[in-house]
Design a protein around this nucleic acid. Structure first.
Lengths: 110, 110
DNA sequence: TTATAATATACGTGCAAGCGTACATATGTA
DNA sequence: TACATATGTACGCTTGCACGTATATTATAA
């Protein structure tokens, strides 16, 4: 494949991945995987401020990871593609494996 | 689960995800998925400078996503867990879907 | 229209990331 | 030891991210 095209794909790919690269956004995505939620619910469940929640949601929406539908004055956010959660679960498995190995290393030191 | 524990897990989870949140690191990870490579090979294949390659590899190694083994003066990098590639592939699928939808939107404008 | 509730954004700040250049370290060889 | 090769790191710089606070915006109801 053309190198420039490959780089542009990697760039877009990285922008998707970057959506996952923040603990609060991870929490938001997992919360949304259980069904649509509005900003107030997310704010309360995840213990973050309104402004912070809004900003993270804006980023996720700008990158098409979530969609919105209004019900009166309330805006509900939903996950667009459940594969995002599958990917997060895979990476959580990777993390678990890493922690197990570190634990083994730590015990070998004793 | 305890909220503080959950937040710490999300933090570690995010650090793993952050490894994927850069186009050059994505290229590096895919390159390593084909087998171990040294810095020079990566630098040449991916068209990045030595220093840049070294720094990205250091980050990936610090977070246990890759391992190294020396052969004389040469350092070979390998992928630790192939699930990272599976996750990247899933997210690439998400990206493809997003681009298809955007294309449909663009065409609807004509 | 005025008030109020739910979201969204602008501003300023502090922090972390990424890069190029230049220097430093480590391994192997004459 | 002196030198060459492959890799790693420090510095300075610029850019982007995340946050709190305060201020819009949007939609409903009185």
């Amino acid at each position: 494949m053309d190198k420039a095209v490959q780089q542009e794909i990697d760039q877009l790919h990285a922008e998707i991945c970057q959506c996952l690269a923040d603990p609060k956004r991870i929490a938001i995505l997992y919360a949304l995987s259980e069904g649509r939620k509005n900003v107030g619910e997310l704010m309360e469940t995840l213990d973050i401020s309104r402004a912070t929640a809004s900003r993270h949601l804006k980023l996720l929406r700008d990158r098409s990871m979530v969609t919105t539908d209004r019900d009166g004055v309330t805006v509900y956010y939903s996950l667009v593609d459940h594969r995002v959660i599958e990917a997060l679960d895979l990476l959580r498995g990777v993390l678990a494996q890493i922690l197990v190995q570190r634990k083994a290393l730590a015990e070998a030191l004793e």
